[in-house]
Design a binder for these strands. Sequence first.
DNA 1: CTATCGTATTCCGATATCGGCATGCGTCAA
DNA 2: TTGACGCATGCCGATATCGGAATACGATAG
Lengths: 113, 113
Amino acid sequence: MARAATTSDVFNAIAEPQRREILVLLRAGERPVTELAQELGMTQPGASKHLRVLREVGLVRDRRVGKQRLYGLDARGLRPVHEWAGGFERFWSESFDRLDAYVQDLKQTGKAE
Amino acid sequence: MARAATTSDVFNAIAEPQRREILVLLRAGERPVTELAQELGMTQPGASKHLRVLREVGLVRDRRVGKQRLYGLDARGLRPVHEWAGGFERFWSESFDRLDAYVQDLKQTGKAE
DNA sequence: CTATCGTATTCCGATATCGGCATGCGTCAA
DNA sequence: TTGACGCATGCCGATATCGGAATACGATAG
């Protein structure tokens, strides 16, 4: 076996920096492939591939307009990501006492031995 | 080139379902490796490897206690993820008019041709 | 029908990932 | 020191990813 978590998973789709950039760009509105590729400094096939992944996980929708194909954002799939990360909110906002004490302990342990 | 986004990136670290499970488990408190492996139904080396990735991106800290090594959560690294996804919140909560109209358009285009 | 533009797909090489297995290392007990 | 335990690391095979280049496909224009 290898690489258990394949595509078709939102978390995996946004693991790619360039795909995240595409999503950010699309917040400003629909764009054709070539324009996206140009603005992000990547080749057209490269952009098409990333867009395919994003489409397969449902983060992006495409619409044909003449010869062009406009890609638009469908951010609903990002909601689970937001909520999942939000489930850890109390661990970064409160109770740093325990964490700090813990870090101190780490330092001491490291020095002592 | 291949696989541009390596580890050492939080988004990549949480792209793995099992690593996400580890983080969730650690919300309940520190745990030794063997216990994590057992609760998640994976081998000990498997757990150690995932923990290593999580440690390298700073989502987890370890502490030696006798023969054991306790892993604890350090969720601060998840904050950027939460915020990034949050940047798309308005696209899934409001302005579904545009999206709906858009979906309708997709259907019509599909049927027409 | 043909040419052209915009985009998708395919083929390729390099690499990196994950899982399993065996083994190495550090710690504690006797 | 020796042995046992807990964990980390190394090596392997299978696979999947990304980037690049060439090419195939679809739509419009002429």
